[in-house]
Design a protein around this nucleic acid. Structure first.
Length: 275
DNA sequence: GTGCTTGTTGGCCA
DNA sequence: GTGGCCAACAAGCA
């Protein structure tokens, strides 16, 4: 599930429970694929006894800074989740990393294991983090940069382009569909075929969907499903894109679905035309 | 059993 | 070298 706003939601969950506390015990399933490429022994050494200082989310990544120059990186993949459990929590089958602080346990679980856990030591944030593309809500996400990227990817369908993290960090399948639906752009339009006005709409809706998603999904307490139900209005495509026989919340007309860019894509033919 | 799934990566080919 | 496409990864759910 996790895209930009859900990732931020999970980060806040851990942060509220553990910021400032000391890790007393580190539990890992070292064989789990989520640790691919990570030095699990160093992770265990670096986090045991370290204090949880701060955390940040960018794109679909989370970085937690611990005392002693220890940096924990998390990617939730397709089915990853961060939760907070009791201090004496016993890890379940898909819990690959559990940090017990005494008062609480921080749990990273991921059944499908497309997610990833990284560990780095050093005075500054690791390279993989500092190399992330500028956030869509930052000044670094410019119309000119967007136009240049669309030109470079001129032959690819716009839906596939929006999923490219090198330019659209944090956008996933549902956000991409939401953006294109609001901008009135057919997902199969080639990147190079957009007029200046259409590029402008795309740029604005990228920012708007990120802003709204962060405010409505990440910015509330309670469980994630509750947040979605309470905070995402029925006027979004979000609620209608998976329903069989779903209808466009703006036109009332039928929605269409097809695989584009390797992902199931939903659009409203009445407001998103190919040409 | 079948056929999906809100993500990423590497390999193949033009 | 660059860009586009697709299978693979693994588990759960309807």
């Amino acid at each position: 599930m996790p895209e930009l706003a859900e990732v931020e939601y999970y980060r806040r969950r851990w942060d509220a429970a553990a910021r400032g506390s000391r890790v007393r015990c580190v539990h890992v399933h070292p064989a789990a694929k989520v640790f691919r490429g990570a030095d699990v022994a160093a992770l265990r050494r670096g986090l045991t006894g370290a204090r949880y200082r701060s955390s940040a989310a960018a794109a679909k990544q989370i970085l937690v800074r611990f005392s002693g120059d220890a940096w924990l990186g998390l990617h939730l993949g397709m089915s990853g989740e961060l939760s907070v459990a009791a201090g004496d929590y016993r890890p379940a089958r898909h819990d690959h990393l559990v940090l017990a602080t005494g008062g609480a346990s921080l749990v990273f679980s991921d059944p499908r294991m497309f997610g990833r856990v990284r560990f780095d030591g050093g005075a500054g944030a690791p390279r993989w983090w500092t190399d992330l593309a500028p956030a869509i809500l930052s000044d670094g996400f410019t119309r000119a940069g967007l136009a240049a990227f669309l030109q470079r990817r001129r032959a690819a369908p716009i839906k596939a382009i929006l999923l490219m993290q090198e330019r659209f960090p944090g956008i996933g399948n549902w956000m991409a569909d939401e953006i294109l639906w609001r901008a009135g752009l057919h997902p199969r339009r080639a990147g190079g075929s957009l007029s200046t006005a259409e590029q402008g709409r795309l740029w604005r809706e990228c920012r708007q969907v990120c802003r709204l998603a962060l405010a409505r999904i990440a910015g509330v307490g309670g469980s994630l499903p509750e947040s979605l139900n309470l905070r995402i209005p029925q006027t979004w495509l979000f609620w209608h894109r998976w329903e069989a026989g779903g209808r466009c919340p703006r036109t009332g007309g039928p929605l269409q679905r097809a695989e584009i860019g390797g992902r199931t894509t939903c659009w409203s033919p009445a407001r998103q035309r190919l040409r």
